[in-house]
Computed example of a mutant assay.
Amino acid sequence: MHAPVLDGARLRVAILVSAVLVTLAPLGGCPQPAPSDDSAQDQPAGDAPAKTFTWYSAFNPQNVGALSAVWGSSASDIFVVGGTFDQGEVYHFDGANWRAMEVPSVPLLVWVFGFGPDNVYAVGVGGGVVHYDGGKWTALDSGTKDDLWGIWGRAPNDMWIVGGKTGEGEPVLMHFDGVTFTPVPVPPNDRDATALFKVWGIGSKLFAVGERGLILSYDGANWSQVPAGAD
């Protein structure tokens, strides 16, 4: 597949821009007026000026599939994934310009995660997994045809992937050590959930969330269901 040329009318990606409100200095050495309410009086001295944030459209998309996830290693290294059900798409932002990247023939990509500009993964529909090494994207054999909805890792040799088909089968949970995808048994759940959508961790703990309010927790040895109020 050849990467199409991306111009300003091809892609809409929301970029967060912060505009700092500048406080005007008092004129002629006149003292500033006293605060008019209690909340202003409680404002600690020396606080930074307030900030506002404005979203704006960077591009107007035409003939572009859905855009489903974004990840970046820096402000000049941003990856956006998506596509159509027949073909995944990846776009890259270098801090100034967007470009469409050439990707293998894989279906829709729904999530992206990486460790740096030369080590990025994306997962998607039909068990699709692709890897970027800083030069090109390569398709990997995940060993499943089930949809994959999320990927996260502590290190390039310690990654987790979740997925499944809503309404049928069992949730998909896999560990990836950078070479081999290993299916991990999902504990029985009392919600009849058949898909996990996202996974994330901190310290030695991992959490995976999915269909019908399902939450799973990993303590470094075992996965177990976490009681949740969501249905």
Rank of each mutant, 00 (worst) to 15 (best):
H2L: 12
G203P: 12
P117R: 09
D37C: 10
M159A: 12
G150H: 05
K136Q: 15
G134W: 07
I15V: 11
S18T: 13
G88C: 14
G127Q: 09
D37I: 01
R99G: 14
A75I: 02
W55A: 13
A66E: 03
G135L: 01
A48R: 12
G169H: 06
P35A: 07
F93R: 07
W111E: 06
W71S: 03
P35V: 04
V125S: 05
L27T: 09
D158T: 02
G88R: 14
N97G: 03
F113E: 00
A230K: 08
Q87M: 08
V106K: 06
R12F: 05
A122N: 02
T138M: 10
F85T: 08
D77Y: 06
G213F: 06
K136R: 15
G229S: 15
A48D: 11
T166I: 12
Q41R: 15
K165P: 02
D219C: 04
G124S: 09
L16R: 13
A66L: 11
M174H: 04
P33F: 01
G229R: 13
Y121I: 01
P104R: 10
D118A: 12
A48P: 05
P61I: 05
A3P: 07
V123S: 02
V199D: 01
G8W: 00
T144W: 00
I215C: 10
A208Q: 09
A25R: 11
N60C: 00
H92Y: 13
A193H: 08
A14P: 05
I202D: 14
T144M: 00
V17W: 08
L109Y: 06
E168I: 08
E211W: 10
G135P: 00
A3T: 08
F113N: 00
F207G: 06
S76C: 02
D192L: 10
L11K: 14
S105I: 11
T84R: 04
F59T: 13
T54L: 15
A230M: 09
D158R: 08
Y56A: 11
G134K: 06
Y132M: 12
I151N: 05
Y121S: 04
F85S: 05
E89A: 15
Q32S: 04
V130Y: 08
P156H: 05
T52A: 14
A45M: 02
C30V: 14
A19D: 15
D77M: 02
S68N: 09
H2W: 07
V179S: 14
D86R: 10
W152H: 01
P31Y: 08
Q225P: 11
V110I: 12
E170Y: 03
G72D: 09
T84K: 06
G164W: 05
G128A: 15
V81C: 14
A69K: 10
G220T: 02
D86H: 09
